[in-house]
Nucleic acid binder design. Structure first.
Length: 507
RNA sequence: GGCGCGUUCGUCUAGCCCGGUCCAGGACGUCUCCCUCUCACGGAGAAGAUCAGGGGUUCGAAUCCCCUACGCGCUACCA
């Protein structure tokens, strides 16, 4: 395949959701696989649905997910948007003259006609058709208006749209890269609107013109477009253009199997990021929803996704977004990730939770002001990484390592309800052992050696000693092992926590 | 209503094009056990799909053909 050019063409009508993101991802993977160009085009022809910062949100989301592209609108550091690429503009509202010229061409060739029917008439028509259980659609009333009447009504300034003239017979058949041959009868096609009353083109017109002018080779889009593909093909034909190849992806579904939508939980990509999901996990997960390279691998690096990606391996049935599996995958990534990177990703979450603060000279513990290097943060979060599924759970999980005073019931220091005296004796002995250790000995390995020899030397059990130790250090019944905690805390804090535990038991 | 697309464990899927190796494989989730001071991680197992239903073709069908049902999409001067 030579010089592949594919695109992501979102409408800035809200925040980018998972379904949109998957479209972007598949196009991206396909472009990278074939060494082609991936570009972004903004389809902002519905003026009523535009939202503030819609474009910025889309571009920002692509950037934070690490999806790069060669042409289109780009977000500057200062938040402004600039376009790069030789086939622009890449924003449809800036291409109005182009569409208008093409509309003239269609009008002249008799492939389209002006229509003066009002929305009210159209509504009434549809209502009637529905009531009579007849197929809905425009009745082509304006298609037979005389040239004179049409001209004079336009000159008089009457508001109108331009409709495409659909053939009465024949059919359009095309080969969809994921579904194979698909066929539609022409007489069932509606004389749909090409140019709206406000002068903006509809999706059908703008999309076809732009895909042609931007030399798109493959249109990889959602299944909701499958039914309108014959209209698009007919337009390519009317213009005398070679159409691109089409690949219609299956829809992403809510748990009740309806088309993925808000109202049924988070769907915005940025929400997933804010909730502590990693871009690489999200990409891995979303890529495998509706596409599968027929092997039993579950974890794919981006490069592997690119290498394996084939349009023919896209499924044709819709897929339910299954959060539990995402959680599992995210946990996997959290555990696989290099510590430094994990620390960098985790720090903002710790900050937001008020556990650490970011100063000009680096990170500090919020309570106490003690300095923290990124390595320190790495040591802290690596203690809990295997116990959480998302970055957002990390603050709560590691808070006991960053707080001065631990709050917990004295009762929890006793292993399976052991006598208070026994727990106290263990803590005393532990204090002695710890006191004799050098700060340099506070590695998990050395700490374990010392404590274990204390236990075996006295013929104690692991449980009756380790449990009180661990709870004294963590304040929790569920936590990482005591030796790891010791190594992160250091000698002074360990002694302080053991003393505090004794006081708690004596109180 | 019309047209189109789809239908394999609860979920994501492999197998379907090129029928036998599939009394259907993997993953998530669930359950059990092991590891273990706890929780997790990790490891080992288990349960879980009459391949939507029916009919055909064939020695043989999840795989090919037909019908039905159901789901979804489109049917806007939304994309």
């Amino acid at each position: 395949m030579d010089s592949v050019r594919v695109r992501f063409a979102p409408s800035p009508t809200g925040r980018m959701h998972i379904g949109n993101f998957r479209s972007a991802l598949y196009n991206y993977l396909f472009a990278r696989k074939h060494g082609g160009v991936f570009f972004v085009r903004i389809e902002d022809t519905d003026r009523s649905r535009l939202v503030d910062n819609g474009v910025e949100n889309i571009l920002r989301t692509l950037a934070s997910m690490g999806i790069s592209y060669e042409e289109g609108p780009f977000l500057n550091e200062d938040g402004s948007v600039v376009q790069r690429g030789s086939m622009g503009p890449y924003v449809q509202s800036e291409r109005l003259e182009i569409y208008r010229a093409r509309i003239e061409q269609l009008l002249e060739n008799g492939d389209a006609y002006p229509c003066f029917c009002t929305p009210e008439r159209l509504d009434a028509l549809r209502t009637e058709q529905e009531a009579m259980k007849k197929p809905t659609g425009y009745d082509r009333r304006c298609r037979t208006l005389s040239a004179d009447e049409t001209r004079s009504r336009i000159i008089s300034g009457e508001r109108h749209v331009v409709r495409a003239k659909m053939p009465d017979e024949g059919e359009t058949e095309f080969h969809d890269a994921v579904r194979g041959p698909v066929k539609f009868r022409h007489d069932l096609l509606d004389d749909y609107v090409l140019l709206k009353g406000d002068g903006y083109p509809t999706y059908h017109l703008a999309n076809v013109i732009d895909d042609h002018m931007m030399e798109t080779t493959h249109v990889i889009r959602g299944e909701e477009w499958l039914s309108s593909t014959p209209k698009h093909l007919l337009l390519y034909k009317a213009f005398g253009w070679t159409p691109p190849q089409f690949a219609h992806m299956p829809l992403l579904l809510n748990p009740d199997r309806s088309k993925l939508s808000k109202r049924q939980g988070d769907v915005a990509v940025e929400d997933y990021l804010a909730n502590g999901y990693l871009p690489e996990a999200l990409i891995n997960f979303v890529a495998l929803l509706g596409w599968n390279p027929s092997d039993e691998k579950e974890i794919y690096e981006l490069r592997e996704l690119i290498d394996a990606f084939e349009l023919k391996d896209i499924n044709s049935a819709g897929a339910v977004f299954n959060r539990e599996k995402l959680d599992w995958l995210n946990g996997k990534y959290l555990r696989m990730m290099p510590i430094e990177r994990l620390a960098e990703r985790a720090a903002p979450f710790l900050e937001r939770a008020g556990l650490v603060t970011k100063e000009s000279d680096g990170w500090r513990v919020a309570r106490g002001g003690e300095k923290l290097t990124i390595e320190d943060i790495g040591r802290i979060v690596s203690l809990e990484r295997e116990r959480v599924k998302t970055l957002a759970e990390l603050p709560e999980a590691v808070s006991f390592l960053l707080e001065d005073v631990l709050e917990y019931p004295a009762e929890s220091l006793r292993w399976k309800g052991q006598p208070i005296g026994e727990a106290l004796a263990r803590l005393d002995a532990l204090l002695e052992v710890v006191g004799a250790m050098d700060e340099a000995d506070f590695t998990p390995k050395d700490a374990e050696e010392r404590v274990k020899s204390l236990i075996t030397g006295n013929g104690w059990g692991n449980g009756d000693t380790l449990w009180p130790l661990r709870v004294a250090l963590s304040g929790r019944e569920k936590s990482p092992g005591p030796f790891e905690i010791m190594s992160v805390l250091g000698k002074m804090k360990v002694i302080r926590r053991l003393e505090a535990a004794k006081n708690r038991l004596n109180a």
